[in-house]
Structure formats: structure tokens, C-alpha cells
Design a protein around this nucleic acid. Structure first.
Length: 376
DNA sequence: AATACGGGGAC
DNA sequence: GTCCCAGTATT
């Protein structure tokens, strides 16, 4: 892999890229501000998440938490509620923690230097380079999925882009190309090129401002780059979930902060074991997780959902509370809520899919009265 | 060096 | 269905 460009070539490459960017960049909400806090929020949201998905979340988040202090002083549950549906919830917990730390230890000021950013929770090499270059004009090259794809094609680089971490070749290539006079625009131009021209499939090479430097284009092998390691198939699990009704309210539980869907609320349930019916699993799991004895009624939904490392089939049942007092094993909190109140809690997307079915299914099968009472 | 961590857009 | 997205933390 030949990858050295002459100083003249580098100058020309940077100019072509920057001219193209200034003419063709998309107007995006976080490109209309110079507020480092706002740019930070956008970078956190954009991790592994497409621009189109982020835009409405970005607007809502900044409307609700317009500055660092507003975020730092908000309860985590409120922050999670605004993040609900965006995924990778550790991102927002880290953002919240970082905001609190900066308010407490740094007078609410944001750092300018890469090394300072890097020390904040949730800020890795990419975000540290992105913010310090875009908001503070520091000469740090970013390497994200777009940049790796562009570099992979430019230099016919055989390093797999999805290996962790990708050895460092992409970092040194990006660093070589970086325009140290305009690092922020240069970085955004590289990413924009990857997003809109040097796309994963069917790249628009005729529109590429630097195709003259692209070895993949010259050799007509754009389709074979970037090189990517094959991924293994996602395992599948079946889960039974119960909506436990009692006197018109339903039981929800909160997941612990660490791990999958940390801090979110959900309906109790768990894995269906071999030789067990979904309804049996539902009753057993509710007894194990929250200590209640319930009557499992009708199945109100079957939900297929894919997470990043496995797939689930959720079988959701309406349940009638019979007896027992809530004793949690697993969840860290619980609440009996009226159906109208469900909107106030952050739920995983898979749970949100059946929220509208809860009230009507209960009334259809058990009548519109108060539901079962209890001896608690 | 691998794995955990969401959800959805685009095909 | 599949691929992959402005990655980071943990093990």
C-alpha cells in the first residue's frame, strides 16, 4: 500500500476537498452553531447513528437542556426520557456525568484541548478530535466510519475497517492528510465526503473532488473496499413479558444502570426455557423477578426485535394480579402506574411497540371495570 | 484483541 | 431479510 503524497499533492488534495465541502455540504443543525456544548451533544448522538435519525433528537435535547448547566442539573431520568429510542444509553449517562463533573470541577467551562476532552466519560478518540478541531481549531484528525472508508479506497488499504481498534493505519493516514490551517472544516469535509459521495454502496465517484488521488477509482475496485471482517450471526432468544394489572394500574420495573438498556423501565419477564410454554415462562419469571403470583391471560402481542448482539422474540401477556408483595430480584425499582402515566417513563423500543395495546386488550378480555383488587 | 452496547434508515 | 451508521467502555 503506497500512501505518501508529495507536499504539492497534499496541498492540492486539501484545497479540492475543502472547496467541494464549502459548495456541497448539507445544512445540518449542528453546523449552524459554534457552541461547543451543542457540538458535543451532536457528536455523542451521532455515534453509530445516522444523521437523519439524530436531527429530531438533537433539537429536542437542546431545547430541553440548552446549556451545560441545564444538563448537569437535570435528573438522569429526565435526560433518559429525552434520549428514549436513540439507543446506546450509556452515551447519555456518560454525557450527563461529564456535564456534572465540568460544572463541579471546571466552573462549567468546556476544555479546548484534545487531552482534556479525552479524559471525560464517553469521550473517546473520535469525539475528542472532533470537538477540539471543530469547536476549538485544534489540529486533530478524526477517524470515524466515513473517514476509514474514504481512506481505505484512496490508498487501497486492506486493513479491515471493523477491527477494533483498526491498528492505527487509518489514524496515520488521516493525520497525513489533515489540513492544519482548517482542521475543523477538513475533518467535516472528510466525513461529509464519506457520507454523501464515497458511500458504502454505489459510490458517486464522478462527483468526487479527490478521485484523482483514489487508487480504488483508478483500478475500478471501489466495490471491494473497504475490507470488512465477516460478522457472526446474531443468536436468538425468546422472552415472555407480562403486563400485570391491578386495580386499573400496571406494574413496571426499572433496569439497573449498568448494562443493556441501563436505567430504562420495562414490563417484567424473562427467557422462555426449553420445554416451557410462553405463558408458563411469563408466570414463573414474574414470580422470580418481582415476587408476585399472577394469572396469565391473553397474549396481546408478539414483537420481534434486534439488538446489537442478539435478536429477541417478545411474547407479551396480559396478567391479573392474584397475590403477593413486590420483592425485586434483578430490577432496582418498581412502580404501579396508570396507563396514561406510561408516557412519562423511558422504555426500550421493543416495549414501546405494545404500549398502545395495553388498555384496550385488558378491557376487551376482562371488562372495563377496576380490575382485580389485592390484599396488600 | 474481543465483546457489549440500540435502533432504524436504506436497500 | 442484510448492512451499517460522525464509537466507547469493558474485559
Amino acid at each position: 500500500m503506497k500512501r505518501e503524497l508529495t507536499p504539492d499533492q497534499l496541498r492540492d488534495f486539501r484545497k479540492r476537498l475543502l472547496d467541494w465541502y464549502r459548495r456541497h455540504r448539507r445544512i445540518l443543525p449542528w453546523r449552524r452553531t459554534r457552541d461547543p456544548y451543542a457540538i458535543w451533544v451532536s457528536e455523542v448522538m451521532l455515534q453509530q447513528t445516522q444523521v437523519k435519525t439524530v436531527i429530531p433528537y438533537y433539537r429536542r435535547f437542546l431545547g430541553r437542556f440548552p446549556d451545560l448547566a441545564a444538563l448537569a442539573h437535570a435528573p438522569l431520568q429526565e435526560v433518559l426520557k429525552v434520549w428514549e429510542g436513540l439507543g446506546y444509553y450509556t452515551r447519555v449517562r456518560n454525557l450527563h456525568r461529564a456535564a456534572q463533573r465540568l460544572v463541579r470541577e471546571n466552573g462549567g467551562a468546556l476544555p479546548a484541548a484534545y487531552e482534556q476532552w479525552k479524559q471525560l466519560p464517553g469521550v473517546g478518540e473520535y469525539i475528542a478530535a472532533a470537538i477540539s478541531s471543530i469547536a476549538f481549531q485544534q489540529p486533530c484528525a478524526v477517524v470515524d466510519g466515513n473517514v476509514k472508508r474514504v481512506l481505505s479506497r484512496l490508498f487501497l488499504c486492506d486493513e479491515p475497517v471493523n477491527r477494533s481498534p483498526s491498528s492505527g493505519v487509518f489514524g496515520s493516514l488521516a493525520d497525513q492528510l489533515l489540513d492544519r490551517d482548517k482542521p475543523g472544516d477538513h475533518n467535516q469535509a472528510m466525513m461529509e465526503l464519506g457520507a454523501t459521495v464515497c458511500r458504502p454502496r454505489r459510490p458517486l465517484c464522478p462527483r468526487c473532488p479527490v478521485r484523482g488521488y483514489c487508487r480504488a477509482f483508478r483500478e475500478g475496485v471501489q466495490g471491494r473496499y473497504p475490507v470488512r471482517l465477516a460478522r457472526t450471526a446474531l443468536p436468538e432468544v425468546s422472552v415472555a413479558v407480562g403486563v400485570v394489572h391491578r386495580e386499573g394500574r400496571v406494574l413496571i420495573t426499572q433496569r439497573r444502570e449498568k448494562g443493556l438498556l441501563g436505567g430504562l423501565w420495562e414490563f417484567p419477564g424473562g427467557k422462555i426455557q426449553p420445554n416451557e410454554s410462553p405463558a408458563q415462562a411469563c408466570r414463573r419469571e414474574i414470580h422470580e423477578e418481582v415476587g408476585l403470583v399472577v394469572e396469565v391471560g391473553t397474549r396481546i402481542a408478539r414483537i420481534k426485535h434486534a439488538y446489537s448482539h442478539f435478536k429477541v422474540m417478545l411474547q407479551v401477556f396480559s396478567c391479573r394480579y392474584l397475590r403477593g408483595k413486590v420483592r425485586l430480584k434483578g430490577p432496582v425499582n418498581f412502580q404501579w402506574v396508570w396507563p396514561e402515566e406510561l408516557e412519562n417513563y423511558p422504555f426500550p423500543a421493543a416495549n414501546r411497540k405494545f404500549l398502545p395495546l395495553i388498555q384496550q386488550s385488558w378491557e376487551r378480555f376482562f371488562g372495563p371495570d377496576d380490575g382485580p383488587g389485592g390484599d396488600e
